[in-house]
Design a protein around this nucleic acid. Sequence first.
DNA 1: CGTACTGTTGATCAAAGTCAATTGAGGTGG
DNA 2: CCACCTCAATTGACTTTGATCAACAGTACG
Lengths: 280, 280
Amino acid sequence: MPILDRAAISPLQPPVQQPERGSSALAHKLHHHAPLTRSERDALRKLLDRNIRTIAAGATIVEAGSPPNEISVIMSGWACRVKHGSCGRQIVAVHLPGDICDFNALITGAADTSVEAIDTVRVAGISRSGLRELSASYPRVSQGFWWDSLVSASVQREWIANICQRDAQRRIAHLICEIATRLDLVGLFEDNRCPFPLTQANLGNACGITTEHANRSLRHLKALELVSIIDRWLVVPDRSALAAFCDFDPAFLHVRDHSRQLAESARELPATTIDLHARV
Amino acid sequence: MPILDRAAISPLQPPVQQPERGSSALAHKLHHHAPLTRSERDALRKLLDRNIRTIAAGATIVEAGSPPNEISVIMSGWACRVKHGSCGRQIVAVHLPGDICDFNALITGAADTSVEAIDTVRVAGISRSGLRELSASYPRVSQGFWWDSLVSASVQREWIANICQRDAQRRIAHLICEIATRLDLVGLFEDNRCPFPLTQANLGNACGITTEHANRSLRHLKALELVSIIDRWLVVPDRSALAAFCDFDPAFLHVRDHSRQLAESARELPATTIDLHARV
DNA sequence: CGTACTGTTGATCAAAGTCAATTGAGGTGG
DNA sequence: CCACCTCAATTGACTTTGATCAACAGTACG
């Protein structure tokens, strides 16, 4: 008898996106790189609040090849980075609240991928001038942007390994572990569950398997009572069991201390650990 | 009758790595981002020459998890970026002359992957202080470093799409197209051929297929007279035919030899995006 | 000379793709 | 309110790509 049926999760379920608290998801995440001071956090918040737009589910946030006039920060909702090629459509990344979508395009001159909203997404646009101001007054914050961008690259390497080395079930399990861990970083995975707008087709595409096979793999995970996705909610009753099942190691997310992240980041780290420019 | 047999390529073959000319492979490559002035090129060259070491084939250039004290630039030879996980070993990138190996580790605090020499590799190490001097005096050069780092991320996204969407033969064909194009950027692919130190096991690993299957796929490509790898030399008689076979589109490499306006937009970037050394 | 690595080939088998069809929920126009 | 449509999830039968297992040959090398 499956534990993870609809009845089990319905009572707890408020089917709305978790509201943000005092600080943005991005600020929340940057604390895992280096703790921000109050003034830094405030500056970031003010910058983000300057220009927020709402994107409908399915709409395009960043068009591939478009001129990079600003960067987009996801405030709420999920998006995915998509490569459209002659071979079809491929999801190459999942973007969660707090993610910076297209920092790279600023330098490469053109986005090589599109970013599409999965559910309704609120996006903060930061102009070049806004970025310039931020980095002039609060260099640690803009450095955090680079950190995020490099962590994203690390995640992409992990995807390559995931797709090449694991079978279908474990690929999906690994992706779910990754998403759950990243949601943890912004405080959006609570009570072993979170809203989960990805369809099975999305999951399959991201993992390099067909929709049908994603379906079967997911049912298998459910039969093992590792994962349940019902009514756009994800439930992972036992995170460590799921991680063990697919050999998930969160090191690639470059979080400083996994066991006590929040407590740790509340404390001030010595400048040298966050200073790029320490003496060699 | 196969055209691409040993006899056909032997006469031309000097089995040594192509020597560098006046400027380094890195300088050569950076020209595709923004043309460098003579003084910029000289400064870069002097910086690279400061500290060059030679790594034996198979040895490790950058150890995963090691403290990032300097960055490594490949002067000659090939290397590969490897992820060692509980699921085994996975090649997630191929590094050619002119590549910067571990720029990312400077900010994330620890390399999440190793870099291993495939054949004998000469590596230039650039210290933090060297980087600081460079970006203070020649910010366009250090900006080129960021460009390279972001292009690498784009390549990784292409790998994901490659592995997810193509069958074994086309994966290999695509990887070969990518490598040939990147060698072009540093002037190391001439006469439809280049030294090719990757083994079939390497190729298979990078493409997510077994060694045996890589072997069969490669023979098939050879039967189609698209590719030949003999005695560690790669010959591609008809690049456009190979590109058509695997739907290779070089856009993801972000080469911008065509337009001048892009170089201008690079000039307007906020200072910190090119300055590693903002005060904390 | 043995040892190890690379390339090669063959036989067998399983994981995943393909094709086809059904259900159910949600949305929309008449 | 119902007929109709689309999309997500689901299931089954069949096919195929590529993995696995098992050799073996050529070469380099200590």
